[in-house]
Lab assay of single mutants.
Amino acid sequence: NITNLCPFDEVFNATRFASVYAWNRKRISNCVADYSVLYNLAPFFTFKCYGVSPTKLNDLCFTNVYADSFVIRGDEVRQIAPGQTGNIADYNYKLPDDFTGCVIAWNSNKLDSKVSGNYNYLYRLFRKSNLKPFERDISTEIYQAGNKPCNGVAGFNCYFPLRSYSFRPTYGVGHQPYRVVVLSFELLHAPATVCGPKKST
C-alpha cells in the first residue's frame, strides 16, 4: 500500500533546468501520483496529453512515469509533440509517434532571462542524422558540413554543433524561455507502482 506522493514538485520547481540537447530525465515510481497538483503548480502555457485524457490521469496506474525536463524558446514548444519536425524535434528531443503522456510548458522569462542575455541554455544546431525517439546526444564533436574532414577544428564548413540561446527579458514571447516537462507513461507487463490517489488504497 503506497502512500508517499510522487515528487513532481522537485521536477517542476527545480531551480535550474537542463539545456534541451542534454535534457534531464527523472524516473518516478512507487508513489501516489496526484496530477491535479500539477494544474495548480504554475499558470501553464501548455498542458497537452496524448493517448490519455488529462482529467482521467488520477484514475490510472502505470509501471513507471518518466519526467523529462529542459528549456526551449516559446515558438519551439509546438515541436514537443508526436510527429513534429524542426531543429528541436530533429536534433535535441524527439517524441515517438505513439507517445503516451503529457507535455507541460510554461513561460520562464522571469527566471531564465537576463538583461545582458542568459547564454547558459544550449541547443544542438547541427547533426548528421535525426534523433530516434527519446535519444539523447550530448556530443560536442565538430560538425563537418563540407567534404573536407574537420579534424576537430572549427572553421570553414566545420561547425561547433551547439548554439546558445541568449534569453533577454525584452524579447518577444516566441523568443522567451519556456520550461518544459514531458511526462511519459510506461505500461509494462509488470506491477503498477505509480497510481492516482483513488487507485492507491
Results as ranks from 00 to 15, higher is better:
N1H: 02
I2L: 05
I2F: 14
I2P: 07
T3M: 08
T3K: 06
T3S: 07
T3E: 02
N4H: 11
N4L: 12
N4A: 06
N4C: 13
N4E: 11
L5K: 06
P7L: 12
P7H: 12
F8L: 10
D9G: 06
D9S: 06
E10S: 04
E10Q: 07
V11I: 10
N13L: 10
A14R: 13
T15N: 12
T15K: 01
R16N: 12
R16H: 00
R16F: 13
A18N: 04
V20P: 14
A22H: 11
A22R: 11
K26S: 14
K26H: 12
K26L: 05
R27E: 04
R27M: 08
S29K: 04
S29G: 10
S29M: 11
S29C: 14
S29F: 09
N30E: 14
N30H: 07
V32A: 14
V32L: 05
A33P: 02
A33M: 03
Y35W: 08
Y35F: 11
S36R: 12
S36H: 06
S36A: 09
S36E: 07
S36D: 00
V37Q: 01
V37K: 13
Y39H: 04
Y39E: 01
Y39S: 05
Y39G: 04
N40R: 06
L41N: 11
L41Q: 03
A42L: 06
P43H: 08
P43G: 10
F44R: 01
F44M: 03
F44C: 06
F44A: 04
F45W: 01
F45T: 02
F45N: 04
T46A: 11
T46S: 04
T46H: 08
F47V: 00
F47T: 06
F47A: 06
K48Q: 08
G51K: 08
G51R: 08
V52M: 10
S53Y: 12
S53A: 10
S53P: 08
S53R: 09
P54D: 10
P54S: 02
P54E: 08
P54N: 12
T55D: 08
T55H: 00
T55W: 03
K56H: 01
L57I: 05
N58S: 08
N58E: 09
N58A: 05
D59N: 10
D59H: 00
D59R: 10
L60A: 09
L60E: 06
L60I: 06
L60S: 05
F62I: 02
F62H: 11
T63C: 14
T63I: 12
N64Q: 00
N64G: 10
N64E: 01
V65G: 03
V65A: 08
A67I: 08
S69T: 07
R73K: 09
G74Q: 14
R78G: 00
R78N: 01
R78K: 03
R78A: 14
R78M: 09
R78W: 04
R78E: 10
Q84G: 04
Q84S: 04
T85M: 13
T85G: 09
N87T: 01
N87L: 01
D90M: 13
D90R: 11
D90Q: 01
D90N: 02
Y91H: 14
D97V: 06
D97P: 06
D97K: 11
D97S: 07
F99W: 02
T100Y: 10
I104V: 09
I104F: 07
I104M: 12
S108A: 09
N109G: 15
N109F: 15
K110Y: 11
K110P: 13
L111Q: 11
L111H: 09
K114N: 15
K114A: 15
K114M: 15
V115F: 15
V115P: 15
V115R: 15
V115L: 08
V115N: 15
S116K: 15
S116N: 00
G117S: 15
G117H: 15
G117T: 15
G117A: 15
N118G: 15
Y119F: 02
N120G: 04
N120F: 07
N120M: 04
N120K: 00
L122G: 06
L122A: 05
Y123H: 04
Y123F: 04
L125G: 00
F126V: 09
K128D: 05
K128M: 11
K128R: 10
K128P: 12
K128T: 08
S129T: 02
S129C: 12
S129R: 06
N130M: 05
N130C: 08
N130Y: 04
L131V: 09
K132R: 07
K132T: 05
K132L: 10
F134S: 15
F134W: 13
I138S: 12
S139R: 12
S139N: 12
S139D: 12
T140E: 02
T140D: 03
E141A: 13
E141K: 13
E141D: 00
E141V: 11
I142C: 15
I142L: 01
I142M: 00
Y143V: 08
Q144M: 12
A145S: 11
A145N: 07
G146S: 01
N147F: 08
N147Y: 13
N147W: 05
N147L: 04
N147E: 08
N147M: 03
N147T: 06
K148A: 12
K148M: 06
K148C: 07
K148W: 01
K148Y: 01
K148D: 08
K148T: 06
P149L: 06
P149A: 02
N151W: 02
N151Q: 02
N151R: 08
N151H: 07
G152R: 13
V153G: 00
V153D: 11
V153W: 11
A154C: 13
A154N: 03
A154T: 02
A154Y: 13
F156V: 08
F156Q: 03
F156C: 09
F156M: 04
N157D: 06
F160V: 05
F160Y: 02
F160S: 09
L162I: 12
R163Q: 00
R163A: 07
R163L: 14
S164G: 15
S164L: 15
S166K: 12
S166R: 09
S166Y: 14
R168Q: 08
P169T: 15
T170F: 15
V173L: 06
V173M: 00
V173E: 07
G174K: 10
G174M: 02
G174N: 10
H175Y: 00
S184C: 13
F185M: 03
F185Y: 02
E186K: 04
E186Q: 05
L187Q: 03
L187N: 00
L187P: 09
L188K: 07
H189I: 14
A190S: 00
A190E: 13
P191C: 13
P191V: 12
P191T: 05
A192N: 01
A192F: 01
T193L: 02
T193Q: 02
T193Y: 14
V194P: 06
V194D: 08
G196Q: 00
G196A: 09
G196M: 11
K198Q: 05
K198Y: 03
K198G: 06
K198E: 02
K199R: 09
K199W: 07
K199L: 03
K199P: 09
S200K: 08
T201E: 03
T201N: 01
T201W: 10
